[in-house]
Design a protein around this nucleic acid. Sequence first.
DNA 1: CGTGACTTTGATCAACTTCAAGCTACGTGG
DNA 2: CCACGTAGCTTGAAGTTGATCAAAGTCACG
Lengths: 241, 241
Amino acid sequence: MAFASASACPHCRLAELCLPYGLHHEAVAQLATAVKSQRLLQADEYVYRQGGDGLYWYAVKSGSFRSFMADSDGFEQTVGFYLPGEIMGLDALQHGRFSCSVVALETAAVCEVPVARLQELCTEIPGLQMQMMRILGKEIASDHEQIVLLGHRSAKERVATFLLMLSRRYGALGFSGTAFNLSMRRQDIANFLGLTIETVSRQLADLNRQGIIRIRQRNVEISDLALLTLIVESCALWRSA
Amino acid sequence: MAFASASACPHCRLAELCLPYGLHHEAVAQLATAVKSQRLLQADEYVYRQGGDGLYWYAVKSGSFRSFMADSDGFEQTVGFYLPGEIMGLDALQHGRFSCSVVALETAAVCEVPVARLQELCTEIPGLQMQMMRILGKEIASDHEQIVLLGHRSAKERVATFLLMLSRRYGALGFSGTAFNLSMRRQDIANFLGLTIETVSRQLADLNRQGIIRIRQRNVEISDLALLTLIVESCALWRSA
DNA sequence: CGTGACTTTGATCAACTTCAAGCTACGTGG
DNA sequence: CCACGTAGCTTGAAGTTGATCAAAGTCACG
């Protein structure tokens, strides 16, 4: 009966995209009892820090986030962005300490779920274990995509892929897949894609000039989704003309 | 009593590095019953193929492997290498289909474990679930490292990091961390590091010339581990002179 | 000894970075 | 309300790194 607020899992509009996906009604209610609390965050506020105890998973309730690793010389690499319904904190599973830091890109909210409690619940809720594995599998799959992107793609392909990735994810959330606002700075995008801000800016300007997208500051509109997809798939044809 | 061969988990010299790590003696015996079979592979033989049913996890018993993804235009990206004690097949957890292919780099052997059976055993073997999560966490952590590598590092740093990574992993297996044979071709290394074979070859030649390593074909000897580590940590100082 | 796969080395070239300057949006205080 | 300051973004020119192209060298194996 605890946490029977309108925002708890059974009534959460993100349930089908989040941890409860595929679980029975009662199971979802049971899962909801594990959610310790919700937490509101301002832009630039940390959800957790690299090296901290990985005791919780964090489900994105609203807003968006950036995860990044700092290496020995203090240089940061953005590892991923998180949108509502996605789970953060999986990177602590190996040793119990977060290997990334995560900050909010805008005003946002997360649901904190103790990992230990989730693991206990696995024995009680059929399908939960499967679901946790699926979430981990999704993280692995998206990391692999990122590796392919960074390994072999030109600047133009990287930027196009980035826009398509956001388009797909916003679409899955029920938002427009062709018009949205970027919650991250150019610096974050560049860093994520292994490029410099200047290169990102130029590639976006090119796509704009070609009429494939319309971009003004952080506002993006994809005018020709098919063409954008083509850029990703057939590299050589689209060298900046 | 099934599979009570000398190579089954309780007697396997890799147990402490593999799935059984941290489990009680009886638990290991129980786990061993889940191992469907061992499979021997020749060089270039596939363990599994991208798109195939992800019904098994594969523990590397001996030899080494390369996993790679082919994208829409048929281009391959090497995602990782696997050494004894490591688990392959985790990339199928999301949708039940492998997102990578894995081939043996040399004569090798794997233990096949049905994922479904593993999940059942989680309720019976305390700690197994935790261990599976830890293995997934390790995969995520290593993918993140790879993302950092591909995102920001110069050719020299990438090659140095690659050598150090192998050194660490061979060391953990009880082999020499300073002298080993590369089981992969230059092409595989280059592809993994997001470089060309020529660049890899030149960087290795440079390191050789500087006396930091001694390399002849696939035989590597790391003469100055500290210096190699320094290259990775303080990039700018070591531009090829 | 010869063939083919793999690797090394050299010369040239292009993509992306770096450096530098100007622009836009936005918030704050006079 | 506007001027000013700052953070973020764009654009241009020059510089480097690593890619590409080309050729020769090495090794394994029949």
